[in-house]
Design a protein around this nucleic acid. Structure first.
Lengths: 111, 111
DNA sequence: ACGGAATATTCCTGTCAAGGAATATTCAAA
DNA sequence: TTTGAATATTCCTTGACAGGAATATTCCGT
């Protein structure tokens, strides 16, 4: 999960991932759309690949890169444990503050 | 979106976010759960805050940090544009390969 | 086998961010 | 107003990483 996030932390890599959303692409195609140097793109693709975000398929001279849905699904699953935070209104802040107050002032005068 | 990912790219910060999932926490509480130095935690919280991932609420001496659901919701929205990749089986790879073949070999012998 | 296209790898350099230590700030209590 | 607790900030150093240039690799066509 950590690896995935750091892969996506780089702007160009995030861009690549978004490009691949619309279908597989060749290195050369990514190069011309991003306006980066070919070695740069290759290096970024390597990082994305090691993070499990993309898949390679060699076809003749070229290499076709493709998104790996599982990795994005992993993010989705991770997000899942947070989803209740915005799907249900769940403000524990106030009760928490009360707890703090009670714990610190510890005066039994209000009990 | 970029900022959010780089904030989560750091293991300790990811950990902090996961801690806050179960409710707001004080800096000191985070310090004792992570086993990090207090300055480290403060610095990480600063990054998280600037990325919009957390909110601060000063209460007396302490500062209570809280997750900002909107930021996680932003990730969710971003993921949304990819969701069809694993919800529907959408393998354009094969047809893409055919296209490549057709484009490169350009032999009208099959036309 | 050779030449060229597509891609990957290496080496180098500069930049940026994390970690540690020390210090500054803020607030409450006495 | 001094003291101490909780937190933030600064300074410094070190390591990782992106970018560029050059080179290596792989594959196809001839």
């Amino acid at each position: 999960m950590n690896t995935i996030f750091s892969a996506l932390a780089e702007p160009h890599r995030l861009h690549i991932v978004e490009l691949l959303r619309d279908g597989p692409l060749t290195v050369g195609e990514i190069v011309e759309r991003l306006g980066l140097s070919q070695p740069q793109v290759s290096k970024h693709l390597r990082v994305l690949s090691e993070a499990g975000l993309v898949d390679v398929q060699p076809i003749a001279n070229r290499r076709v890169y493709k998104l790996r849905p599982q990795s994005l699904q992993a993010i989705d699953t991770w997000l899942g444990s947070f989803r209740r935070l915005w799907e249900t209104r769940f403000d524990r802040l106030e009760s928490y503050l009360e707890a703090i107050q009670a714990k610190e002032n510890k005066p039994p005068d209000r009990s």
